[in-house]
């Protein structure tokens, strides 16, 4: 069963959010989503300096089988994107909570987010 990491928060659209003090929050997609998509071969991320809005699309993740919009779980300015996943999207499948992170946002507002327990319970993940 797909792993869910306890320390993170999750959106209904399967993005995870890592809050680190007052700094920008890290964002990626959950293992549940990565496993459902299959082997990811293309990722389109928002640009650094652009503003993303919680609950709105800000990019897309494409696998051999399907394509899925990327929704920002928070509102704020994008401070950094993970160039490594753009070059090697398989990182998202291999390490969705680590090397496969997607982008960071100086968040001014969070969308509705779930705890790991809530997310795992609704989406069949394993804590």
């Amino acid at each position: 069963m797909s792993k869910v990491v306890a320390e993170l928060k999750y959106s209904a659209e399967h993005e995870w959010v890592a809050v680190a003090g007052d700094g920008p929050v890290g964002i990626g997609i959950s293992a549940v989503a990565a496993d459902a998509l299959g082997d990811i071969v293309y990722v389109d991320l928002p640009e650094v300096g652009s503003t993303v809005t919680a609950g709105e699309t800000c990019g897309e993740v494409e696998s051999t089988k399907s394509v899925s919009d990327l929704y920002s779980p928070v509102t704020g300015e994008v401070t950094e994107i993970n160039d490594a996943v753009v070059t090697d999207p398989a990182l998202i499948n291999n390490d969705p909570y680590g090397a496969g992170w997607l982008f960071k946002v100086a968040a001014t507002e969070e969308g509705p987010l779930m705890s790991a327990e809530e997310y795992a319970a609704t989406n069949g993940g394993e804590l």
Binding site: G38, D39, T64, K65
Partner: peptide, 10 residues
């Protein structure tokens, strides 16, 4: 549909 990775299978 796939076992581990459909890309690896391909």
């Amino acid at each position: 549909l796939k076992y581990e990775s459909e890309l690896a299978e391909h």
